[in-house]
C-alpha cells in the first residue's frame, strides 16, 4: 500500500518525530519525501499477502526460553549524581522538561 503525506504526518505525530519543513506550502518537505520512500517499502512488503499463513502461529521470540524470573532481592541503585549524569537539564535532584499539563 501507499502511505500518503497525511498518513506520514499522522504517523510522525504518533511517533513523536518532528518533521522539518512541514509547512503545507512546501510540497517537497520531509513528509513528501517519506511518503514516497515509505510507500515503496510498503509496496515491497505487500508481497507478504501472497503467503498463506492460515493456522500458523506467530513467532515473537526465538530464544526458546520461558519463565525466566529472578528472586525478589535488591542491589544498589545508581547514585543520584550518576542517574542525572547525562541529563541536559537538572534541578533539585530531578530531571527537567518543559512544562506538561498536569493530568
Amino acid at each position: 500500500m501507499k502511505l500518503t503525506k497525511d498518513q506520514v504526518k499522522k504517523v510522525a505525530r504518533l511517533a513523536n518525530l518532528p518533521l522539518t519543513s512541514d509547512e503545507e506550502d512546501l510540497p517537497e518537505g520531509e513528509a513528501g519525501k517519506y511518503s514516497e520512500q515509505l510507500s515503496r517499502v510498503l509496496e515491497y512488503i505487500d508481497q507478504l499477502n501472497q503467503v498463506d499463513t492460515t493456522g500458523v502461529e506467530p513467532t515473537f521470540n526465538v530464544s526458546g526460553e520461558s519463565n525466566i524470573m529472578r528472586e525478589d532481592t535488591t542491589v544498589a541503585s545508581l547514585s543520584q549524581e550518576e542517574a542525572l549524569s547525562n541529563a541536559p537539564q537538572k534541578k533539585e535532584g530531578m530531571f527537567v522538561t518543559k512544562g506538561v499539563f498536569e493530568e
Binding site: K91, E92, M94, F95, V96, T97, K98, G99, V100, E102
Partner: peptide, 11 residues
C-alpha cells in the same frame, strides 16, 4: 512529575 514555574521536574 512535579510542576514548578512552567517546568516539569521528574523523579
Amino acid at each position: 512529575l512535579f510542576h514548578q514555574e512552567g517546568q516539569t521536574l521528574i523523579d
